[in-house]
Design a protein around this nucleic acid. Sequence first.
DNA 1: ATCATAATTAATAAGTCTATTAAACCATAT
DNA 2: ATATGGTTTAATAGACTTATTAATTATGAT
Lengths: 207, 207
Amino acid sequence: MKIKNEQSMEQAILETAERLFLEKGFASTSTTQIAKAVGCNQALVHYYFRTKDNLFNTIFESKFKLFFQKVFDTTQLENMSFTDKIKHIVETHFDLLAENPKIPILILNELARQPEQIKVLRDKLHTLPEKLFSLMNRELELEIEAGRIKKIQFVDIVVTIVSLNVALFTMLPVASSVIQLTEEQQKFMMAHRRSENVNVVLSYLKP
Amino acid sequence: MKIKNEQSMEQAILETAERLFLEKGFASTSTTQIAKAVGCNQALVHYYFRTKDNLFNTIFESKFKLFFQKVFDTTQLENMSFTDKIKHIVETHFDLLAENPKIPILILNELARQPEQIKVLRDKLHTLPEKLFSLMNRELELEIEAGRIKKIQFVDIVVTIVSLNVALFTMLPVASSVIQLTEEQQKFMMAHRRSENVNVVLSYLKP
DNA sequence: ATCATAATTAATAAGTCTATTAAACCATAT
DNA sequence: ATATGGTTTAATAGACTTATTAATTATGAT
């Protein structure tokens, strides 16, 4: 079965598999379903990726890497005040999640399924967070000494930011169907919480 | 196969199934595995619950109900200042999650699998949240008028609390194996975040 | 045009999963 | 002791899963 545009069959399988794995998780997605969604024979999925685990891990690791590269990117942070840096981090983290709202749950479920995988991810992350952490830690100390920020550990700021942002994207779909929000109201809520999460973190820093 | 103590076989199946569903999710848990873990014949699982869906929903709905009954319980809140009420809500919500750390992910995954189930849950919740919300909303208005609390909506306080607490229990296990925390360090971190989550919320309320 | 190689398919092995059925087992009331 | 009804098991149907193999088709180089 020829694929219309220039996109290779291998790529088509990857993309469709990614979509299905994100939608329904690893266990509930079969290679047969992937093949059907792509419009190819089921054996072809195994021809390119040999095993379902292989296919999943290929997708998972590349998504994971891409996601955290962006999370720990420090290039935009120069020439900002400390609180502006924090604001920027909250907002870009929020926006990154808005583009990948199902990544956190995928990661949680996958690591529950294959705890050994954690070692691989630790190696993948490796030095990524270090630059950001050392940069922010240094500045945080100065701010605290100058009395502009409450005495606090940077890790607590990070935990707070990640919690607020991740929880929003994992829970809002559920919450909004329970309390029956329209598409419109959901969008409004999202935009509102984007700024509110910044507010929460910044009030937390006030001396 | 006779079960030792007085516990009935039906109950044993329920408890084992609950444990396995929480550990590995619906799709990755088979009735065969449940039976093996209980130590009975696989057909017995179907004898008592007819279908796997049935078994799961029985467990899910009872867990769900119990959990939210406790969440929305207002009996402990009398004769407290507003900020003490908030502190108490954060802490009891935290403690409830500490006892049921896998409930949030179970709910998220299950509702992704069976979106229709949401209607059932909405009916189950029904008036549960109303008492708490009306109580707190009334008091919040008074506090705002008195200038003791920043102008804010109660729903934003709730979202903040739930986000901070839920995210901690869903993410900490992953995070702590990535950064390799000992059991001891994890416990310390938990206790620390319990108070820190209170701090975050209370600073958020300051005018 | 033909040959080699890559892509794709059909067929199928081997296994697991859910669910059902009929038979065996066990306790208890008569 | 035995008939009865609830409990438990063995056996199995039927669907679906992953993965492999061999055969077919398409592609590109010579």
